[in-house]
Amino acid sequence: MRGIVRSMATTLGAFVRGPVTREYPEGHRPIPERDRAFPLLLWDFEIDEPYCTGCHACERACPVECMTVLMKDNPAHTSLGGNSSRRKIIDKFWIDYARCMRCNICVEVCNFDAIAMNNTWSGHETSVYDRADLVMDLPQLLAQHKAGAIDEWVAP
């Protein structure tokens, strides 16, 4: 009987203290800086082109082979009259978010700090009706940083 009374008192205490959950779509919990959603590509605002040179380092390091990288000669390279020091630049880039396991290895192996993990809520809310829509192409991967909507964190 004493134990039952104690249990009842415990739940009553919780009843008085009130809820600890919050209403999800209305109120988003603040998200830590290091949060890892899905990887995205960064935009070099100085030269107005992606940082990524398409060096395949991330593609090779990816444990689940969710990336596909194609590079091309950079039309904006200084030798061609542009202002970029990158001889090669990314041509096409796909990341299959459905396969990505968010291990951060691509960020670690990148020599150009061109890729980062999305640490915003929009990076988590990626529900779609068709799995094929989770295969992100280059413009989609660049969009968020290009629009300045992300304060990225790259492991030191």
Partner: peptide, 19 residues
Amino acid sequence: EEITGDRLMYAYFRPGGLA
């Protein structure tokens, strides 16, 4: 999550130390 960036699949330890 504050440490590793993920709530469940941390992938934080590395052979040799920490990520």
